Simulated assay, not measured.
Amino acid sequence: MRRDDRDEPFDDLFREIERMMNEMMNSTNANMDFDSTRDPDSGFGMDTHVDIHETDEEIRVVADLPGVEKDNIDLECDGKTLTISAESEHRQYDERVSLPTRVNEHTAAATYNNGVLEVVFDRAESSSDISLE
């Protein structure tokens, strides 16, 4: 079959890569969607990645914020959700990260080094049982 000159030679390859990325991203986080038509200025984009690591003692959130100065990062947590707001010369980042379990937001420790933000929380204490008398 003769290929039409109007076809891009890599269209099939790019569609397959996008399909695989969607599968991979949807299996790790249902709220994330790899979409090549996404506006890069609309918040966290394709060059930004957020990971959540969980242990018995703590929750660790790691986010890529390329090109952002430390002073331009604002973090807020209500115990269930971490809100990351940051801006650089070229874009603004606003992300709400749902934490896998309740955390003690008062124990938060954050570091920012070479474009990588890391926030560590202690898990919140389980509520105590209430005995009836």
Rank of each mutant, 00 (worst) to 15 (best):
T48H: 09
T48D: 10
T48Q: 09
H49A: 10
D51C: 02
D51I: 06
D51V: 06
I52G: 00
H53T: 11
H53S: 10
T55Y: 14
D56P: 13
E58S: 13
I59Q: 02
I59E: 02
V62F: 03
A63G: 01
A63M: 01
D64Q: 11
L65R: 01
P66K: 04
G67M: 01
G67C: 01
V68P: 05
E69T: 13
E69N: 10
K70R: 15
K70A: 13
N72G: 04
D74N: 12
L75W: 03
E76T: 15
C77W: 06
D78E: 01
D78V: 06
D78H: 04
G79Q: 02
K80C: 06
K80H: 12
K80F: 12
K80Y: 13
L82C: 07
T83G: 00
S85I: 09
S85T: 12
S85V: 10
E87N: 14
E89C: 06
H90R: 11
R91M: 08
R91F: 13
R91K: 10
Q92H: 13
Q92A: 14
Y93F: 14
D94Q: 15
E95V: 13
R96P: 06
V97N: 03
L99Y: 06
T101I: 11
N104R: 05
E105A: 08
T107L: 03
A108P: 02
A110L: 00
T111E: 11
T111H: 09
V116R: 05
V116M: 05
V116D: 00
L117K: 04
E118P: 01
E118Q: 10
E118T: 15
V119S: 00
V119H: 00
V119L: 00
V120R: 11
V120L: 07
F121H: 08
R123T: 12
R123C: 04
R123W: 07
A124E: 03
E125V: 12
S126Y: 08
